[in-house]
Every structure is written in structure tokens, then in C-alpha cells.
Design a protein around this nucleic acid. Sequence first.
DNA 1: CTATCATAGGTAGACTATCGACATATCACC
DNA 2: GGTGATATGTCGATAGTCTACCTATGATAG
Lengths: 112, 112
Amino acid sequence: MPKRSSRSDLLPGTLDMLVLHTLTLGSLHGYAIAQHIEKLSDDVLQVEQGSLYPALERLQKKGWATSKWGQSPTGRRARYYTITASGRKQLGDEISDFDRVLLAINRVLTRG
Amino acid sequence: MPKRSSRSDLLPGTLDMLVLHTLTLGSLHGYAIAQHIEKLSDDVLQVEQGSLYPALERLQKKGWATSKWGQSPTGRRARYYTITASGRKQLGDEISDFDRVLLAINRVLTRG
DNA sequence: CTATCATAGGTAGACTATCGACATATCACC
DNA sequence: GGTGATATGTCGATAGTCTACCTATGATAG
């Protein structure tokens, strides 16, 4: 678990969701996935390589994504990831669970 | 790290924030803190003992809470926790950081 | 020609939060 | 006497993230 005291990179447990969502835009290689997340988040979220590649391994092991070697737009070798049907289902489940928990946290912080 | 695939107990990294906020309501013992969080969250959040007591240790080590032995309303011995000034500051920091990261996640999930 | 930077993929080790299971004890209630 | 709620705590396993490393190529600056 990260510092998260202030100035955090990621909210633990949310990286898979962010990656899966990014893959719904189309097949991408790891580096591009990280860039996409960082850019859309206005650089609030930082996707470190040490988190990214284990996460991509994870997604494949669970059957939520597949990958194959290809070429990046800049001509370098790159592994392209594609979300699977079960990955899409997983994404939906994760988002609704995430929302549910966020609402619960909000109830505690506001009702109390 | 927990399963969090679906049906989660806690969003990792948020327990300290929830406990600190609960302590702003007044001094409470551990068991009551857990009950309060579970109840206000409509039992969505589950605070397991194996997470609760280490968290309370943590808060004390960081100087965010103090504790002393007392008696619970039911007459049993109980350790009462009190939030400190630095704990209140920490709570504010954690909430604003949390909000900042949530907004970032939302931007990724909606803009993309 | 060389150094540096961005791109691209990856691993190893440490850290740490959380969880499940266990242990202990008291009190209320049946 | 047994069970369930209250109350505190520990231990080991698991897992996600981070820091720091490594390799390699292409582009650009000097």
C-alpha cells in the first residue's frame, strides 16, 4: 500500500477499472494506456510502470484482456491489449461496486 | 489487499479517514467506531477487527489519536479514542486528497 | 558523433493495508 | 450450561502499489 497521506499516485484497487475502461476505446499498448489515464486525469493519477505491467498481467490471467505483439505508431515493438467480453462484464461490475462503496463512504462522512 | 472484485468490505486506504471522521463526533471505543461506520453506510462498509485495531494503532503512532481505558455503556472495559489537533488536520488533508483523486477517476471514466 | 530524452517493456524487493481465523473475557438471556 | 453480543487484540497470508532497477530503439540537440 502506498503513502496516500497526500499527493497520491493511485487510489488502491482502482487501476484495473481504469485500464479496462481505457481498453473499451480500442486496443492499446501498455505505455499508451498509462499516458491516456494520466492525461485524462490532468496528471492527478500517475500510472507507474511497476504498477502498470503487473496489472496488465493480472487482467490477462483473469481472462479480462488478451494481448499480442505489434508495432506502435512510432515503429517500436509494443504489446497490444484487447478487452474481452468477460472483461467488459468485470468493468461494469467494478464500476457499480465502486459507486456503491463511494456512496457509502459519503453517507458516513456527511451523515455523521 | 482485499478481493474487491465485487462485494467489498472497504475501499483500501479509506479506513483511517472514516475512523478519524467518526472520532470528530466525540471519543469512542473501537467496537463503537466500527459499528458507527457500518451503520451509517447501511452495512455496505464492513470494518473487520483485523483491520480496525491495526488502524487504531496506526492513528496513535502517527499522533492523530490518543486513547485511554474506560468503561463502555454496557459496563465492560473499553479503550476510548480521541482525535488530536493534528488528527483533524490529517482528516482534512485526506478528504481533500480523496476528493481530488475521485474527480480525476471520474474524468477518466466519463471523458474517455 | 554523442548525449539525452521519449518511447516501450519488464523485473525484484520492500512496504503496507486489509482480511480471515483465532484467542480471550464479560455480560445478558434462555 | 450454551449461545450471542460486546470488547480487544494477534497472527499469517494475500495482494496491490511503489521505488529502483534493467534493456532497447528512435528522435533530436549539441
